[in-house]
């Protein structure tokens, strides 16, 4: 399990856990980025926010937030 922020561009993974409060968890889940979802890192330039895709949804996630999303790399 590693933070989402550590994944390279193009890497895929499965979200395992989201720390940082229920509000964030609920918001991410509703946007299609809850635990259990398969995600793909579209853009991670090791600075600034990441671009992450799950299905057809694509969101920008701040680096701080992305440290709190733990994923299992495939």
């Amino acid at each position: 399990m590693v933070p989402l922020a550590f994944l390279d561009e193009g890497a895929r993974g499965k979200i395992v856990r989201i720390t940082g409060g229920h509000g964030i968890l609920a918001r991410l889940t509703a946007m299609g980025f809850g635990p259990g979802r398969e995600v793909k890192v579209v853009r991670n330039q090791m600075a600034g926010p990441l671009l992450v895709a799950s299905g057809d949804a694509q969101v920008a996630i701040g680096r701080g937030m992305a440290m709190k999303i733990l994923v299992e790399v495939e």
Binding site: M31, A57, A60, G64
Partner: peptide
């Protein structure tokens, strides 16, 4: 404090 987390759909 710090600005809060950033999540936004593009």
């Amino acid at each position: 404090g710090e600005p809060s987390y950033f999540i936004m759909e593009l």
